[in-house]
Amino acid sequence: MTRYVALLRGVNVGTTRLAMADLRRLVTDLGHDEVTTYLQSGNVVFGSTVRDAGRLAAGIERALADELGLTVPVLVRSARELAAVAGGNPYAEREDDPTRLLVAFLATAPETSTVDALTVPGGENVAFTVTGREVYLHYPEGGYGRSRFTNAYLEKKLAVVATTRNWKSVRTLAELAAG
Results as ranks from 00 to 15, higher is better:
1 M>K: 09
1 M>Q: 05
3 R>G: 12
4 Y>P: 01
5 V>W: 02
5 V>T: 10
6 A>P: 01
6 A>V: 03
9 R>E: 04
11 V>N: 11
11 V>E: 09
12 N>C: 11
14 G>W: 10
15 T>D: 11
15 T>I: 03
15 T>R: 15
16 T>I: 13
16 T>S: 12
20 M>L: 11
21 A>Y: 00
21 A>V: 12
21 A>C: 00
24 R>S: 12
27 V>D: 04
29 D>K: 14
29 D>E: 15
30 L>N: 10
30 L>P: 07
30 L>Y: 09
31 G>V: 12
32 H>G: 01
33 D>Y: 11
33 D>G: 14
34 E>G: 13
35 V>S: 08
35 V>R: 07
37 T>K: 12
38 Y>L: 11
39 L>H: 06
41 S>C: 05
41 S>G: 12
42 G>K: 03
42 G>W: 05
43 N>L: 03
43 N>G: 04
44 V>G: 10
44 V>L: 06
45 V>Q: 07
45 V>D: 04
45 V>K: 07
45 V>T: 12
47 G>N: 04
48 S>T: 07
48 S>D: 04
48 S>K: 06
49 T>M: 07
51 R>D: 15
52 D>Q: 05
54 G>Q: 08
55 R>F: 01
56 L>T: 00
59 G>L: 00
59 G>M: 01
61 E>I: 01
62 R>I: 02
64 L>H: 09
65 A>M: 13
68 L>K: 13
69 G>F: 09
69 G>I: 10
69 G>E: 11
70 L>C: 07
70 L>M: 10
70 L>N: 10
71 T>R: 15
71 T>C: 00
72 V>S: 10
74 V>R: 12
76 V>F: 09
76 V>W: 07
81 E>G: 05
83 A>V: 01
85 V>K: 01
87 G>C: 06
88 G>D: 02
89 N>P: 01
90 P>Q: 00
90 P>Y: 00
91 Y>P: 02
91 Y>V: 06
91 Y>H: 13
93 E>M: 04
94 R>A: 14
94 R>Q: 15
95 E>I: 02
96 D>E: 14
97 D>K: 04
98 P>N: 13
100 R>K: 15
100 R>T: 04
101 L>F: 11
101 L>G: 02
102 L>K: 14
104 A>E: 02
105 F>H: 08
105 F>E: 01
106 L>N: 07
108 T>I: 01
111 E>G: 06
112 T>V: 10
112 T>F: 00
119 T>H: 07
124 E>I: 01
124 E>H: 06
128 F>I: 03
129 T>N: 10
130 V>A: 08
131 T>F: 00
131 T>H: 12
131 T>C: 03
132 G>T: 06
135 V>W: 03
136 Y>K: 04
138 H>L: 13
139 Y>S: 03
140 P>I: 00
142 G>W: 08
143 G>L: 15
143 G>K: 09
143 G>C: 02
144 Y>K: 05
145 G>M: 04
147 S>N: 11
149 F>R: 05
151 N>F: 06
153 Y>K: 03
155 E>T: 08
156 K>P: 00
156 K>S: 13
157 K>R: 15
157 K>V: 05
157 K>E: 15
158 L>A: 04
159 A>C: 07
161 V>C: 02
162 A>R: 03
164 T>L: 03
165 R>F: 06
165 R>N: 05
166 N>F: 08
170 V>R: 05
171 R>C: 09
175 E>K: 13
177 A>C: 08
177 A>W: 04
179 G>A: 14
